[in-house]
């Protein structure tokens, strides 16, 4: 599913990263815990979150995420949008709740990330 389709089904406002809305996503992750996002997500993943700080953009960059949807109408500050714009990470905003937004994407065939990245055994 392309991000531009995600934008339509989640009735989202695009905050930045228009040029990358043709990116294809395979999985999605709904989380406010960035450490979980880092360890559970794979490539081609979309992040849905209620957090709007700069760490969300950093996490997307470090974890190679395809884009970020802020749920329940939470709008990040201009410095967050600017950082994402510079890094080419699409940011979108939906008025939907986390549950509804994830549910809609799941119905469209997008699946979650349940496998951990594992190398060194604990």
């Amino acid at each position: 599913m392309k991000l531009v389709e995600v934008q339509t089904v989640l009735r989202s406002e695009v905050l930045c990263g228009w040029e990358n809305l043709d990116r294809e996503i395979v999985t999605a992750c709904g989380a406010d815990l960035m450490s979980d996002v880092l360890v559970y997500t794979k490539e081609r993943t979309l992040l849905l979150t209620g957090l709007t700080n700069i760490q969300v953009v950093r996490t997307a960059e470090v974890g190679d995420l395809m884009g970020i949807i802020f749920v329940r109408g939470k709008r990040p500050g201009p410095e967050v949008i600017e950082m994402a714009r510079v890094k080419g990470i699409p940011l979108m905003l939906t008025e939907l709740s986390m549950f509804d937004a994830c549910g809609i994407l799941h119905l469209k065939g997008i699946r979650g990330c349940s496998e951990r990245v594992t190398r060194c055994e604990l």
Binding site: S35, Q55, T118, L122
Partner: peptide, 15 residues
């Protein structure tokens, strides 16, 4: 901020 949940060190070891 989405951190401090006790996942940092285990995540480093895992990666």
């Amino acid at each position: 901020m989405g951190f401090g949940a006790g996942m940092g060190l285990p995540n480093m070891a895992r990666c």
